[in-house]
Design a protein around this nucleic acid. Structure first.
Length: 957
RNA sequence: GCGGCCUUGGUGGAAUGGCAGACACGCAAGCCUUAGAAGCUUGUGAGGGUUACCUCGUGAGGGUUCAAGUCCCUCAGGCCGCACCA
C-alpha cells in the first residue's frame, strides 16, 4: 500500500502541498504544542485543579462534555470507535470558542471479563495486558488531536480510583431506603429507630435482645447493598453469575453467548428497585432520546394492579394481578415451582377423582412436585423459552378458594409463572389471558367468560380458539350478594373489585415492577474487591474508610473457575478464595485485633463506570469523592438542567438499560446522602450511530479480508474466487476493520475527523467507504491552496476589502455552520464550509479577513490545519480560545431571493425579489409576470397564496 | 406477541409543510502529464425533445392541504428493544 500512498510520492517533489507528509508534520507539531501548553486543561473553581491565573471561572459559562469511556481492548481501534470521541471533541472545541470553560477528557474502564479472558489466553497478568492496551489506545487516540484534559484521565483499575468505588459501595451498604421520605438515609438512623423502639422489630423483641447475627440479618432486609440467597443467573461457561441486564433475550450470556441457568445462591445485591419510581419520574428532567427513555421505562416496567389473597387450608396465597376485574373468572391458580408455600399446601395423597393428566404420572402430589421441580431446574432459560408454547405443570393436590365466587380452585405449579415477578403466584383467568387459556386447554380446566366478547363470539369459552383479552368492553357473569361488576367497564370494574377486596382485608391496590434488584457480585479476579470481612461467627463487617482501598491481591492463578457450559448443577467458586494469605486477615475493627475472612467476590465491571463523571471533576482529591464546590460547578442543577448532570454525554444505545440505569441509581443514592447536589448524572444524552462496513464471505461463509477484494462488473473477487458481499459491523473477526492509523498515514487526522463527521447524521449508522475519504482530503487541500501557495509555501491571501457577494457567502456560511454545530449536525456544517470554500476557489482569490473567518469556522472539525493556517496568517496564540465567528445579520440574509410562482403547485415562473417584500407586493408582481399571465390564460383565478419572499401559488379553475 | 425507529439518484446523504436530490463519493468527457497517479475544469435522477423546454419521480396504496419526502391511515420490507411480566 505504501507505494501508492500519494503523500509519500509527493513529499519529495511538492514540499508545500497539503499532502500526507505535510499534514503529519503539522499534526504532530500541534499535538505537542497543546500537550506542552496544557491548552485543554480546564480550571476548577476549587482544589488542586483550580487556577488563579484563569480568573473567576465561576462567572464563566461552562460545559461538561463526555464520552462513554472506552474499554481498552487489546485488539486496537478501528475507525468506528472514535466516531463519538471526534464528535464530542468538535463540540467541545466549538463551545470553548464560544467562551465556555470546557471539561472534556477521556478515562478507561479497565476492569472486567475481556481483560481477564485475554490475560488467561496469553498467560500475562491482566494488569500488564490492560496497561499495554491503554497505552496503545492513548497512542492511537492522540493522533486524532482530541482536546482532552490529560490530568483528568482516570482509570478504574487505579487503586486511587477504586478506593472511591469501594467507598461508594460502603455508602450504599450503610444506607436504607426510607419509604416515608422516599430517599436513602444512613443505616445508623434505622438502627436508632429499632434501638429506641420507635420502629418495632418484625418479631416484636427488643433490639437489645437480638444477637449480632440476627441484627445483621434484619438490617440486610433494609440495606441498599445486601447479601442474600436469591435465584440468580448462573453461567457455568463463564464461571460467574450475571445481572439480568447481562443476559440476552434468548437466555444466554451477553459475553461469550453461554447458556444461563437459574440457581439459588447467596450473592450481593443492590436494592435498585427502591428507586423504581424515581428512576421513571426523573426521566422527565432529562434531555435524552425518547427511544432510550422508553427503554428505561419498559425495563423498569411499572404496572398497576392489585394484590389478592386466596385462602388454602388456612394459609393465604397472595397473587398479583393487573386484572382484578376478572376475579370471577379465576378458575385455577398457579405457583412458580420455587414458591415457598408449595411444600406446606401439598397433601399426602391425591384428592379423589383427580384428573390423571394433572398428576404428572406420580403416585403422590409430593412426588409429582419434586419431579417437576427437578425438571424445571435443569432447564436453561433458552430451553424454557423454546418450550414457551407448550404449557407444562402439575397439580399440587391442593384447592384454594376464589374470594369472590367462593368456589374451590385447583392450585398448580408451572414454570410459566416466574418466581421473580410479582408474588410468584397467579390467579388464572383462562378466558381472558392467552397463557392461562393455553394451560387450561392442556389440562382440561374450566373457563368462565367474564368480559363480554365484542367480536361476535359466544359467551362459552369452550368454543373459542383463544382468550378474549380486550380492555374495551364490559364485565358479565360477575355478581353475588355483596358485589356486582356486571355492566361496568373494565376500568370501573378494576376499581370496584379492588375496593371490595380492600374493605375485607383480602387485597389492595398495588404497583408492581418488572425491575429486579441488581446482582452485584461476580466470581472474578479482575474486579474491585468488596470492602467487607466476616468474623469468626460469620457476621459481616464493613471495613472503615481508613482501610481503603482493599487492593486486588497479586496472585499466581487469576483464572476463573469455569465449567461445562451445560452443567447446571455446578456452583461458582471465586478466584480470590484460592488465596488463603489474602483471605485470612487480622484486623482491629474497634474491639481489638481479631481474625477475619475477606469477602472473595468482586464487583461487576459496571461499578467503575457508575460514578466516573464525578472523578473527572476532581481526580486528585484525596479527601472526598468530589469537592462539592467542583461538583456543583460542573453538574449542579440550573434552569436549563433541572436535575443537573453533564451537559452532553455521547455514546452507543447499547447501554440504554445497563450502565445508564446503574449510574443514575448510584448518583441518586449519593444525592440522597448529601454527597452531590445533582439528581441526575447526565443531562443530555446523544446516541451516536455505528459505523458499519461491507463483509465479504467465501463459499463456505467465512469472512475474507475486505481490503483484498477486487470488484469487477458489480461482482466481488478474492484471490480470483467470487465472494458474496453483505452489510455488517466493522471488526477484526469479520476481517473488515480499518484502522484510524492507516487513514492518518494516508491523509492525516484532520481528513479522518472531517470524513467521519460528514458521513451522515451522528445518530444513525452509516457504512464506511475508504474510497470516499479522499473527498474530505481534497476539501482541505483546496482550503490550504486558497491561503497558502503550493509552489512556494507563501501566503496568497489578498489584503483587499471583500466585496458584498463574498461577504454574503461568508456570513451565510457562518450563520448556517453555527446553527449546525450547536445542534450537533456536523455533516451539514461540513457541507456549508465546503460551499464557502468552493465559492472562494471560483472567486480566484481570498481576502485575508475572509480566510481568517473560514479558518475559525473549520477549526473545531479540523483543528491542526486550522491552527497552522491561523499561525501562518500571523497569529501567535492558539485559536482554541479565539471567538467563533458570528454572522452579521446584514449579510446573512441574501440581497435578493428567487421567488417561485406556482400555478396549481407547478412552477411556472421565477422572480428575483428583495427579501423584505410583502405578500401583497409579491402577489401583484407575480400576477403581472408575462409568463404567469400566459400560463393562466383564460382560467379564472380562484385563490392566490403568497408566502413572501419565496413563493406564490396561484389556484385557477 | 408487544413497543419503538427507518425506507429519497449507481453510493453516503441534504431539504422550518413551499423549486426534491445541498455537499461528497463514483462515473463520463476534457485539461495537465512521456505515461500513470495526484490535481484541475465541466457534466451526471429517469424518460422525451435539435434548442427553448416537457413529462415522470422520495418503498406501495389511500387521505388532509392551495401545496406532502415531510402530517394522518392501511400495507410491504428492514433494523432495534422487550418478551410465559400475570
Amino acid at each position: 500500500m505504501s507505494e501508492t500512498t500519494p503523500g509519500a510520492a509527493e513529499a519529495a517533489t511538492e514540499p508545500f502541498r497539503y499532502a500526507a507528509a505535510l499534514a503529519a508534520e503539522i499534526e504532530s507539531r500541534w499535538q505537542d504544542v497543546w500537550e506542552k501548553e496544557g491548552t485543554f486543561n480546564a480550571p476548577n473553581p476549587a482544589g488542586a485543579l483550580s487556577d488563579p491565573a484563569a480568573g473567576d471561572v465561576a462567572a464563566k459559562p461552562h460545559s461538561f462534555i463526555m464520552d462513554m469511556f472506552p474499554y481498552p481492548s487489546g485488539a486496537g481501534l478501528h475507525v468506528g470507535h472514535p466516531l463519538g470521541y471526534i464528535a464530542t471533541d468538535v463540540f467541545a472545541r466549538f463551545q470553548r470558542m464560544n467562551g465556555h470553560n470546557v471539561l472534556h477528557t477521556l478515562g478507561y474502564d479497565a476492569f472486567g471479563l475481556p481483560a481477564e479472558q485475554h490475560a488467561v489466553a496469553t498467560g500475562q497478568h491482566p494488569r500488564i495486558t490492560t496497561d499495554a492496551a491503554i497505552a496503545n489506545m492513548r497512542q492511537q487516540l492522540r493522533r486524532l488531536g482530541l482536546g482532552h484534559d490529560p490530568r483528568r484521565s482516570i482509570s478504574t483499575i487505579d487503586p486511587e480510583y477504586y478506593r472511591w468505588t469501594q467507598w461508594i459501595f460502603l455508602q450504599i451498604f450503610n444506607s436504607w431506603y426510607d419509604q416515608e421520605t422516599a430517599k436513602a438515609r444512613p443505616i445508623a438512623e434505622l438502627i436508632a429507630q429499632f434501638a429506641d423502639g420507635s420502629r418495632p422489630t418484625p418479631d416484636g423483641r427488643a433490639w437489645s435482645e437480638l444477637s449480632a447475627a440476627e441484627r445483621d440479618e434484619l438490617l440486610g432486609d433494609f440495606r441498599l447493598a445486601y447479601s442474600k440467597e436469591v435465584p440468580v443467573n448462573w453461567c457455568p461457561g463463564l464461571g460467574t453469575v450475571l445481572a439480568n441486564e447481562e443476559v440476552t433475550a434468548d437466555g444466554r450470556s451477553e459475553r461469550g453467548n453461554f447458556p444461563v441457568f437459574k440457581s439459588n445462591l447467596r450473592q450481593w445485591m443492590m436494592r435498585i428497585t427502591a428507586y423504581s419510581d424515581r428512576l421513571i419520574a426523573d426521566l422527565d428532567l432529562l434531555d435524552w432520546p425518547e427511544a432510550i427513555k422508553l427503554q428505561q421505562r419498559n425495563w423498569i416496567g411499572r404496572s398497576e394492579g392489585a394484590r389478592v389473597d386466596f385462602s388454602v387450608n388456612g394459609d393465604a396465597i397472595t397473587v398479583f394481578t393487573t386484572r382484578p376485574d376478572t376475579l370471577f373468572g379465576a378458575t385455577y391458580m398457579v405457583l412458580a415451582p420455587e414458591h415457598a408455600l408449595v411444600d406446606s399446601i401439598v397433601p399426602a395423597a391425591w384428592p379423589a377423582e383427580t384428573h390423571e393428566d394433572w398428576k404428572g404420572g406420580a403416585a403422590t402430589p409430593a412426588e409429582a412436585v419434586a419431579a417437576y421441580r427437578a425438571e424445571a431446574a435443569a432447564k436453561s432459560d433458552v430451553e424454557r423459552q423454546v418450550d414457551a408454547k407448550i404449557k407444562t405443570g402439575v397439580f399440587t393436590g391442593a384447592y384454594a378458594t376464589n374470594p369472590v365466587s367462593g368456589e374451590p380452585v385447583p392450585v398448580f405449579i408451572a414454570d410459566y409463572v416466574l418466581m421473580g415477578y410479582g408474588t410468584g403466584a397467579i390467579m388464572a383467568v383462562p378466558a381472558h389471558d392467552h397463557r392461562d387459556f393455553a394451560f387450561a386447554r392442556a389440562f382440561a380446566l374450566p373457563m368462565r367468560c367474564v368480559v363480554q366478547p365484542t367480536d361476535g363470539r359466544s359467551q362459552d369459552p369452550h368454543e373459542w380458539d383463544d382468550a378474549f383479552d380486550t380492555y374495551d368492553s364490559v364485565i358479565v357473569n360477575s355478581a353475588h350478594d355483596s358485589l356486582s361488576l356486571n355492566g361496568l367497564s373494565v376500568v370501573e370494574a378494576k376499581a370496584a373489585a379492588t375496593e371490595w377486596l380492600a374493605a375485607r382485608g383480602i387485597g389492595e391496590g398495588t404497583v408492581n415492577y418488572r425491575l429486579r434488584d441488581w446482582l452485584f457480585s461476580r466470581q472474578r479476579y479482575w474486579g474491585e474487591p468488596f470492602p467487607i470481612v466476616y468474623d469468626e461467627d460469620g457476621v459481616m463487617h464493613a471495613l472503615p474508610e481508613s482501610m481503603l482501598p482493599v487492593e486486588v491481591p497479586e496472585v499466581e492463578d487469576y483464572s476463573p473457575h469455569t465449567y461445562d457450559p451445560y452443567d447446571s448443577k455446578s456452583s461458582p467458586k471465586t478466584p480470590l478464595s484460592r488465596n488463603e494469605d489474602w483471605v485470612n486477615v487480622e484486623l482491629d475493627l474497634g474491639d481489638g485485633v481479631r481474625p477475619y475472612r475477606r469477602e472473595t467476590n468482586t464487583m461487576p465491571n459496571w461499578a467503575g463506570s457508575c460514578w466516573y463523571e464525578l472523578r473527572y471533576i476532581d481526580p486528585a482529591n484525596g479527601e472526598k469523592v468530589v469537592d462539592p464546590a467542583n461538583e456543583g460547578y460542573w453538574l449542579g442543577p440550573t434552569d436549563q438542567k433541572p436535575g443537573g448532570g453533564a451537559d452532553l454525554y455521547v455514546g452507543g444505545a447499547e447501554h440504554a438499560v445497563l450502565h445508564l440505569l446503574y449510574a443514575r441509581f448510584w448518583h441518586k443514592v449519593l444525592h440522597d446522602l448529601g454527597h452531590v447536589s445533582s439528581v441526575e448524572p447526565f443531562h443530555k444524552l446523544f446516541n451516536q450511530g455505528m459505523i458499519t462496513a461491507d463483509v465479504y464471505r467465501d463459499e463456505r461463509g467465512f469472512p475474507v479480508p475486505a481490503a483484498e477484494i477486487e470488484e469487477r462488473d458489480g461482482k466481488y473477487f478474492w484471490q480470483g474466487e467470487q465472494v458474496k458481499r453483505e452489510a455488517g459491523k466493522m471488526g477484526k473477526s469479520l476481517k473488515n476493520a480499518v484502522a484510524p492509523d492507516s487513514i492518518c498515514d494516508e491523509y492525516g487526522a484532520d481528513t479522518l475527523r472531517l470524513y467521519e463527521m460528514s458521513m451522515g447524521p451522528l445518530d444513525v449508522s452509516r457504512p464506511w467507504d475508504t474510497r470516499a475519504v479522499v473527498g474530505s482530503y481534497r476539501f482541505l487541500q483546496r482550503l490550504w491552496r486558497n491561503i497558502v501557495s503550493e509552489d512556494t509555501g507563501e501566503l496568497v491571501v489578498t489584503e483587499e476589502t471583500p466585496d458584498e457577494a463574498t461577504l454574503r457567502a461568508l456570513h451565510k456560511a457562518i450563520d448556517g455552520i453555527r446553527g449546525d454545530m450547536a445542534g450537533l449536525r456536523f455533516n451539514t456544517a461540513v457541507a456549508k464550509a465546503i460551499e464557502l470554500n468552493n465559492f472562494l476557489v471560483k472567486r480566484g482569490s481570498t481576502p485575508r479577513v475572509v480566510a481568517e473567518q473560514a479558518v475559525l469556522l473549520i477549526a473545531p472539525l479540523a483543528p491542526h490545519i486550522a491552527e497552522e493556517l491561523w499561525r501562518r496568517l500571523g497569529h501567535t496564540e492558539s485559536l482554541a480560545f479565539a471567538d467563533y465567528p458570528v454572522a452579521d445579520p446584514v449579510y446573512a440574509v441574501a440581497e435578493s431571493v428567487i421567488c417561485v410562482v406556482q400555478i396549481k403547485g407547478k412552477v411556472k415562473a421565477r422572480l428575483e425579489v428583495a427579501p423584505s417584500i410583502s405578500d401583497a407586493e409579491l402577489e401583484a408582481l407575480a400576477l403581472a409576470d408575462p409568463a404567469v399571465v400566459a400560463a393562466i390564460g383564460d382560467a379564472p383565478v380562484r385563490k392566490v397564496i403568497a408566502r413572501a419572499p419565496k413563493l406564490v401559488n396561484i389556484v385557477t379553475g
